[in-house]
Design a protein around this nucleic acid. Structure first.
Lengths: 229, 229, 229, 229
DNA sequence: AATGAATGAGCTTTCATTCAT
DNA sequence: AATGAATGAAAGCTCATTCAT
């Protein structure tokens, strides 16, 4: 009972953790909460478990974040903020259109691959029908430059006569995202059912080429015969 | 206390529900549980809530399914069994290769579109790293004919000189699935961020064409220049 | 769900077990119940667990025995009936008094040693303050010949001038029982606290001699100096 | 619903009980739990019942003790701690050997007589094959001075030529304990079967003398003729 | 600003037993 | 005489949150 936990698993007692460093403490909580929610979902994540892996106590989580839901939202906002910041700093206008598209795909592919936590948080939020995000001014106000970036590349490509297809930037973005996201988000069930390993280096390399080829050939190809169904 | 609910919201009173119809009762539970878990996830789903929407009582859920986890697994097995049964009955070998591919894509697109519950369950199970599925003999033993179907179509296409690309069936399946799945699984966050409506009929039609075009042009196109990264 | 158990562990379905043999079935149930209650106590014993290890179903337990309590009582009555039957068949009047006493001690010692189930059931019933036994006419009416047997031996011993002490048969019986019973009933805590093994053969032999010596020297010794306290 | 009990008999309403007195509250719980488990066993004892007789709520039992099993273990540890503390303070080395032995017997006899709860807890723990105690560092580390005390007395007795028998301290302790323990632990079945009252004052006095006489005559007597069996 | 102690409400699961033929 | 199916009631435990300073 003197290990900082009450017998029922509630973390209670003082820890040596940094005092008088509100920002440090908040960041600490946020990091741990990111792991917890990303790993176990919102409902599955435990405030106690977060507190236990933190330098502070559970009480401080409530002090700084107010509620489990608000903490979860802060985690979500941080994750979205990070990717937006990077996306907004991509500079693809110096490259010729096809190369720019491939660069964007490769960036997306690699980022998703390396940020499984983010992928999982987005999946989790979709399970919740984005109900938490809807309340977030922060995420609402995030600038999504990637669509503009894509639009400009497509325009340049069309102007140069390289891209013929009439593809909308947002649809293209979705197609790229879908592939890169799915590889990570659904790897567990996919691996199990198809006896694959989507994490294997050679599979990763093959997939990276394939999505690039598919997008480029879509953009360069003749509009296909279309029948509705 | 005569509202049929005990103080904790647990329904206790008898219901008129069908007696002596074990299969009907089990199916009833399964249907409601599918909604509950699909909507709220495994951790977020409540056995009490399932029972309340059922003709039976909570006790019967445990009588028939043993535990919350086993019930969830039964839901998952049913969902996978349904799609596999349909997939295995697709008959695409009568169509010429390109048409067969487009048919498969259209089927996949429509099925995912119409079975959001299934999509959500798969997402949820991936959040759990497929841990429940790993224990399921039922899902392990499911025959996944779709890969063979694709392989035969690709082979015919190559024999006829229509498909030139060296694309593996399983990778192609993943690409198709990724797009069709993502549209549904991630629609909530996508709609919110990009101010889109992925459910809108015209968007749906456009996307359906686009994924078809992308796959076909990938299969028909010259192997693209490939650079590793 | 076709292993004769419902998913929640309730044994339900038919077993191949002997039909039309009520006595055999009852005996089967009784044997299994003896193990269960003896091992886990009355509250800890499970009707389901008993049924599962039986040739019949749980329903039959209620059919034949009426309730968990009645089944437990039947087990208790059987256990007491067995030892009484044997005790009543001891023939110690052919032996000279000291030898007869030693024989009785050895019989008691060995019987308790070999019937741990009985020991445990008696302990369990004492935990329940003999409340079940109080309702049992069967146990009430059991003839306890051992006290008479002891009385006759003591009388013979006094008549022969061998036993001088004024010890009552029932007290002597208690002293013998206490030692033999405790060795078995309390062996788990005793072993743990004193780092002993009360089951070890040499310890058993030593103890058997010791209790014999103690009783005999008590019976043969001069009445000791007695001070009340 | 304003009787302070929810539908399932669980007490939910606030009690006036002492706040901000963790130690007092824990002691309160421990006392009530001792009664409950001692009276009904581990499986038969109810956390709800304990809570109901306490100044606090069921929730606090889990807050302070973690689980039913841990609470039970705390009860056991307290009971063992109490007797060991007293045993370790016995001072018998000032008395001549025979008197010291008689004093020890009388102390044991009286303590067991007066601490039926302890006796019952030990019986209960033996029914559980000491499985809880095995996990208890507290009990494992308890110093059992009584064996050393006995050893020293026996040695003095042999040095003075008073005790001739070659009896081991631990065996002697077991014999004394067996008698004193059994009188209390088995009184309910014993009384019922032999129509005795082991609690009656005259019976108690007679038994106290008898166990003393038996032990002393064993220690002073000639080694008896020993035959194996 | 910071926090130790406490907790109401509800969760999953189990248990002996009876319904209905 | 025998039994498959069903179940009310309650048990142990957990969770996010607030009290009180």
């Amino acid at each position: 009972m003197d290990d900082g936990m009450s017998a029922d698993g509630t973390s209670t007692t003082k820890k040596p953790g940094r005092k008088n460093d509100p920002e440090g403490t908040k960041q600490d909580i946020l990091d741990v909460a990111t792991e917890e929610f990303s790993s176990l979902g919102f409902a599955g994540g435990r405030v106690d478990a977060i507190a236990a892996r933190t330098r502070t106590t559970k009480r401080m989580i409530y002090y700084y974040f107010g509620s489990k839901e608000d903490l979860y939202l802060a985690v979500l906002e941080k994750a979205y903020g990070d990717i937006r910041a990077i996306e907004n700093n991509l500079n693809l206008q110096d490259q010729e259109p096809e190369r720019a598209i491939r660069s964007l795909i490769e960036f997306t592919f690699d980022y998703q691959e390396q940020h499984e936590d983010f992928i999982r948080l987005v999946s989790i939020e979709n399970i919740h029908r984005a109900q938490h995000m809807k309340d977030s001014k922060v995420i609402r106000n995030l600038n999504v430059a990637v669509i503009d970036t894509l639009a400009k590349i497509l325009e340049r490509g069309r102007a140069e006569g390289v891209f013929r297809a009439d593809i909308q930037p947002i649809d293209l973005h979705m197609m790229i995202s879908a592939f890169c996201f799915f590889r990570v988000s659904n790897r567990h069930t996919f691996n199990l059912i198809f006896h694959q390993d989507l994490s294997a280096p050679d599979t990763r390399a093959r997939h990276k080429r394939m999505i690039g080829d598919a997008i480029i050939s879509l953009l360069k190809g003749e509009p296909q015969h279309r029948q509705d169904s």
